[in-house]
Design a protein around this nucleic acid. Structure first.
Lengths: 210, 210
DNA sequence: ACATATCTGTTTAAATTTTAACATACTTAA
DNA sequence: TTAAGTATGTTAAAATTTAAACAGATATGT
């Protein structure tokens, strides 16, 4: 939309959800305005960094006043794309897939869960969150018929790449990958990895006395 | 252990699990040696970065030869602390908690699942992975009796801080936090956040055409 | 209305992270 | 045994990220 938004540094991008969460909390508390200094206390980022981050999207603050919580919240939502609705499917409805479904339900309008897929016969046909679980065989056909923006990939490592290929072929724009493997995908399909076991390993490194 | 290891850059630390995974794959394939160049093709990091990363831990390569896969694998395991066994409990045995339990089972010797806790009466007393789910009320007592290294925090946002306080008080060294909130903890207790909804938001940002 | 304090946007500097370059050492094959 | 090729460790440069500094604009209290 805005033409300079391509240049938003990766580091800034990854902080946006945290800003949004903080602002949502403040809004809920009835806070109307906030300064970079107060937000710094709240978030643990330096006030300087907050001002610089927010400035990538244009001046939303006012000197001597601060930032309007409501307005800034809306703005960041728009930047992240949460002001629109994105269709989501979940492939692999094990524990992780169901946990993911719960997260998706938490958003009022930003996401719409449109499909669940699994290959386990016992699961096919049952419902999760009011949505029927379809057979994995139906995935390709489903993607032809329906426009899917995001797929949460909650299958095991072995089948991850195969499923990912089908998702890419079917026109999915982004994959939230929970399988602990690195997917090879065509240009244009975005991937966000959530390699849980790696977080555990990093934590283990941190607690190992050294 | 090594006295300069405190200086390992954060960015390097966070890449270690990925190195370990790649080396494990190679070992499984029977590859004995690997050069930084080949590893670069495999991982997508530059060869230069790989050499520089690995050098933080001492020279494990050999000029004209490369790196011994087996030896390097062992070394990184040791650096991460995976050559020892760490006790783990999971607090909150919903879908996420059970998924987490599965991950832990995947490690042969590095982790030992020693306890599961939940407050839902229907769950208490049932077993997951051969471990009985205890009542949340027993948590403090359990921590007094047992030495717990890591806790996976899989409870809802509302109770996360309260539980985290008990964990810290009980001597837990690290918390893998799945609750989408920022925990306030005493110095010395490490936290690794896995804020799944934030990954989804970042992915949404990436796919939003701009 | 005015002075003082507040707070942003922006510029400049520091720190961190990544990439490139290269000298040196080892391997391999003839 | 020797020469050519390979590949590391290390140093230097570039890029990115974070922090500090400050000028200018707004708010607030008297």
């Amino acid at each position: 939309m805005r033409d300079d938004s391509k240049k938003i540094p990766v580091a800034v991008k990854r902080r946006l959800p945290r800003y949004l969460r903080a602002l949502g909390d403040l809004k809920k508390k009835g806070v109307e305005k906030i300064s970079s200094g107060s937000l710094s206390d709240y978030l643990g980022y330096t006030a300087s960094q907050i001002r610089q981050d927010l400035n990538h999207f244009g001046g939303f603050g006012q000197q001597g006043y601060g930032y309007n919580v409501e307005a800034l919240c809306k703005e960041i939502e728009a930047i992240l794309g949460l002001d629109r609705t994105h269709s989501i499917i979940i492939v692999g409805v094990g524990h992780l897939g169901q946990a993911m479904a719960n997260y998706v339900e938490g958003y009022e309008k930003s996401y719409e869960l449109v499909g669940l897929f699994d290959i386990k016969p016992a699961l096919i046909g049952t419902e999760v969150g009011g949505i029927k679980i379809r057979s994995g065989d139906e995935l390709e056909g489903f993607l032809k018929e329906n426009s899917v923006d995001i797929a949460a990939l909650c299958v095991n490592v072995e089948s991850a790449q195969t499923v990912a290929d089908k998702l890419a072929e079917g026109g999915v724009k982004g994959i939230l990958n929970f399988a602990v493997t690195d997917l090879d995908l065509p240009e244009g399909v975005k991937v966000e990895n959530v390699h849980i076991s790696e977080f555990l390993e990093i934590l283990t490194f941190d607690i190992s006395d050294r």
